[in-house]
Simulated assay, not measured.
Amino acid sequence: MAESKRPRPSQGRGGAGKGPQKRTGRPGAPERRGGRGGAPAGGQRSGPPRGRRPEPKERTDAQKTYDGPPIPDDVSAKDLDRFARQELQGLPPKLAEKVARHLVMAGSLLHEDPALAHQHALAARARAMRNGLVREATGETAYALGNWSEALSEFRAARRITGRLIYAAMMADCERALKRPEKALEYDTPDIRAHLDEAGNAELTIVMAGARRDMGQLEAALQLLETENLLSKNRADWVARLRYAYADTLLAAGRRDEAVTWFHRVVAVDGNKLTDAEERLAELEG
């Protein structure tokens, strides 16, 4: 029987699929082909014509995110508050400065243009994904955009990194927005309450009352709100939001006259016009 022809195995190491190469006088040097200097025979050149630069490749989505939106020259890392700058000290100085400037932009644009603010936060995250402050900022901007799942994911990442619970109310509110009021109620624990200041506790109560309302438990919602200092003389934003939640829940419970009284009390402390209490009163009293 005639022997079948097989390709010969390559000889030596590093020559997969190739036969022995011609020696050139230098050990390991590849064989030169064509004209002088290794140019192809016939004088033809490979590559783009001389004098013409190759077209720049378009940036990928990930690269565009990393680049982020432009930052005005007058925006400085020093515009970030001292606590926040301390949170970035673990980063190399030049990187920390770039991240800080993106965070300044994210904070300044949060209410005016949350979509652009989120792009700045994502650019910061692309550079410092394991920084808790950066993940908190990304969660805040996603929350402002109504990207509830993304915001919740970012807040969870921030909590794993820092151990802080200051965003518990926003996390619970994301669960509400995702139609999971029972999950929202899981944030109302003594441990979380103990880590929150007066404003944080009031904000968490507002969300818990909202979750109770989502479940049709209006009386339970009212009872929760009544545990807070509704008559506080503080004029901070949380007071207006707390009173508004109480007035709105009273109205939902059919207690119209009491609701009108509390909408007036909202207007009395809502100097920043955070709520539409004035419009609600116009509807109720008009």
Rank of each mutant, 00 (worst) to 15 (best):
M1S: 15
M1A: 15
E3P: 01
S4D: 11
R6H: 09
R6A: 14
R6G: 04
A16T: 07
G17H: 09
G19E: 14
K22E: 11
R23G: 09
G25I: 12
R26T: 13
R26I: 13
A29P: 04
A29M: 11
P30I: 06
R32S: 14
R36A: 15
R36F: 11
G37I: 14
G38N: 12
G38K: 10
A39D: 10
A41L: 12
A41V: 11
R45F: 14
K57A: 15
K57C: 02
E58G: 07
D61T: 13
K64A: 13
P72N: 02
D74F: 10
V75I: 15
S76R: 13
S76G: 01
S76A: 13
K78F: 04
D79A: 11
R82K: 14
L88H: 07
Q89A: 15
L91H: 02
L91K: 04
P92C: 07
P93D: 12
L95V: 12
L95C: 05
V99W: 00
A100Q: 03
A100W: 00
M105P: 01
M105D: 02
A106V: 06
L109V: 09
L109Y: 03
H111P: 00
D113Y: 03
D113H: 08
P114S: 05
P114G: 03
L116R: 03
Q119A: 12
H120A: 03
H120I: 03
H120L: 05
L122R: 12
A124W: 00
A124L: 05
R125N: 01
R125F: 00
A137D: 01
G139I: 14
G139H: 05
T141E: 02
N147D: 15
N147Y: 11
L152A: 05
E154W: 01
F155T: 00
R156A: 09
R159F: 00
R160K: 13
T162R: 00
R164S: 08
I166S: 06
I166K: 01
I166Y: 04
Y167Q: 06
Y167T: 04
A177Q: 15
A177D: 05
K179D: 15
R180L: 08
K183R: 12
K183H: 08
E186D: 13
Y187A: 04
D188W: 13
T189C: 13
D191N: 02
R193Y: 04
A194Y: 04
N201E: 11
G210M: 04
D214I: 06
E219K: 14
L222S: 08
L224H: 07
L225M: 13
E228T: 06
N229G: 03
K233A: 14
V239E: 01
A240Q: 03
A240S: 14
L242R: 01
Y246Q: 06
A247I: 11
T249R: 02
L251K: 10
L251W: 06
A252H: 09
A253C: 07
A253M: 04
G254D: 07
T261Y: 12
V266L: 10
A268Y: 04
L274W: 04
D276W: 00
A277L: 10
E283D: 08
L284W: 07
G286N: 12
